[in-house]
Amino acid sequence: MDVFMKGLSKAKEGVVAAAEKTKQGVAEAAGKTKEGVLYVGSKTKEGVVHGVATVAEKTKEQVTNVGGAVVTGVTAVAQKTVEGAGSIAAATGFVKKDQLGKNEEGAPQEGILEDMPVDPDNEAYEMPSEEGYQDYEPEA
């Protein structure tokens, strides 16, 4: 019985440690998101679009440190934060509304985080759909 109880105690310690790591990862992701939003706020009209992409990228980098179902929630929060940063930029006159959601080359930025393969159960990952990809044929 002692062996059984000791095993359960060790398992509990492992769960607590994993929860603490997840909590730490979420806190880091939130900190990076805040950094990115402050970065966007300090940019001029020309830099705002690039700044919004930076927020998304920093958040995406930190999301990889967070495991399990938390990833889905962090990704949703990050996307809403990026959308909010863009709205703030438009409201303050840093950028025109028609410039939001495009990178410096004018290509749409939507789907940055949505296409990231995420499995809350950590069982399997699927690649994003290939609808947006084109076949590449090298020139002879």
Rank of each mutant, 00 (worst) to 15 (best):
N103C: 08
G111N: 05
K96I: 02
G106H: 13
A30V: 07
K96E: 08
K80W: 10
A30C: 08
E126H: 08
I112L: 04
A85E: 02
T59K: 01
M5V: 13
P138E: 04
G68P: 03
V77R: 03
G93P: 05
Y136H: 11
G41K: 03
V95R: 08
Y39L: 12
D115G: 14
Q62S: 13
A90S: 08
D135L: 08
Y136G: 06
T33H: 01
V74N: 01
K32P: 00
Y133H: 10
K58C: 05
G132D: 10
L100V: 12
V74L: 15
E13Y: 07
A56R: 11
Q134C: 11
D2E: 02
F4N: 00
A89C: 14
N122Q: 07
L8M: 06
I88S: 02
A27N: 06
V55N: 01
D121L: 11
T54A: 05
D115N: 12
G93K: 05
A76K: 09
V74R: 01
A11L: 15
A56N: 02
M5A: 03
T64L: 12
D119W: 03
D98S: 02
A78T: 10
G73C: 13
G14E: 06
K102A: 14
T44K: 01
F94V: 04
D135G: 13
P128V: 06
Y133C: 10
V40L: 09
S129Y: 04
V74K: 01
A89V: 14
V48R: 01
E35K: 09
T54H: 06
E57W: 11
G36N: 12
G14V: 15
A89I: 09
P120I: 09
E130D: 10
Q24P: 00
G41Q: 05
K97E: 10
V118C: 06
E105M: 11
F94G: 02
A19N: 01
E61S: 13
M5C: 01
T92A: 07
A107W: 06
A76T: 06
I88K: 03
E46V: 04
G84V: 14
A53Y: 15
G132M: 12
A124H: 06
E126K: 12
A78N: 02
T92I: 10
K6G: 02
K23R: 09
K60V: 03
E123M: 14
P108L: 07
E57T: 05
V40K: 01
K96N: 15
E61P: 02
A56F: 05
Y133N: 13
S129I: 06
A140C: 04
P138Q: 04
G111K: 12
V49Y: 13
A140W: 05
G93A: 09
V52P: 01
N65K: 12
V26G: 00
K32V: 03
G93H: 06
E46Y: 11
G36E: 02
V66M: 11
M116G: 05
Y133A: 06
L8C: 02
T22Q: 00
G84C: 13
D121F: 07
T54F: 14
I112M: 11
N65C: 13
V48A: 05
T59C: 14
E137N: 08
L113Q: 08
G25T: 12
E104S: 03
T33E: 00
A11I: 15
K12L: 14
P128R: 07
K58S: 05
E137I: 03
V82N: 03
S87E: 12
E57M: 08
G31K: 13
Y136S: 09
V66H: 03
V40A: 03
N103V: 10
T72H: 15
A78R: 09
G31W: 15
A29S: 01
G67K: 06
L100W: 02
S87Y: 14
G101A: 05
K34G: 01
E105S: 14
T92Q: 02
A89G: 04
P117N: 09
V48L: 13
T59Y: 13
K80E: 02
T81Y: 14
E130H: 09
G73R: 08
A90V: 03
E126S: 06
P120W: 05
A30M: 13
Q134R: 09
E104N: 15
G67L: 13
Q79R: 13
L100P: 13
A91E: 05
V55R: 01
T54S: 15
Q79M: 13
V70Q: 01
Q99H: 11
K45Y: 02
K97P: 11
P120H: 11
V49D: 01
T54E: 03
K60H: 12
V55S: 01
V37D: 00
T54P: 00
V15G: 00
